[in-house]
Design a protein around this nucleic acid. Sequence first.
DNA 1: GCCAACGTTGGC
DNA 2: GCCAACGTTGGC
Length: 152
Amino acid sequence: MKYWLLKSEPSRYGIDDLARDRVTAWSGVRNYQARNFMRDEMRPGDRGFFYHSSCEEPGIAGIVEVSRGAYPDPTQFDRKSGYCDPGAARGEPRWFNVDVKFVKKTRLIGLAELRGHKALKNLRVLQRGNRLSITPVTQAEWECIIGLLGKA
DNA sequence: GCCAACGTTGGC
DNA sequence: GCCAACGTTGGC
């Protein structure tokens, strides 16, 4: 079982949207590294932090669980979708996505707080210039952050 | 709005 | 296969 951090802009789709929907397709990812994580490494039962990016208070806002392993992202074939990829063919999908389900909403753990912990110094989302929307989280990092949530 | 960082594209 | 140009991301 692995741990992940999934970024989303709350103005597009935030933790409250997932709390309402309970399950959502993590579709629309158009980056090969992130795709490979979903296709090759993410398995049902894996857990992840839901991270709010490009917003007033960037940070971890919730916990999710992978509820379905990777399958071809239907939006790549949808001509009306902004995620449509003319280079993708039905028999040869280029993009994949998993489904994630809501586990819980947490208090917001902002970047400054995350940076305050040595155990998190390698957390990808804290690195300069990090843009990858899906990143692995080590078990030690996961446990450190879960520990922070135990506090007020 | 700025700007650093990074991925992708395309000419050669 | 190199690399400059460009577009996007995302914190500040």
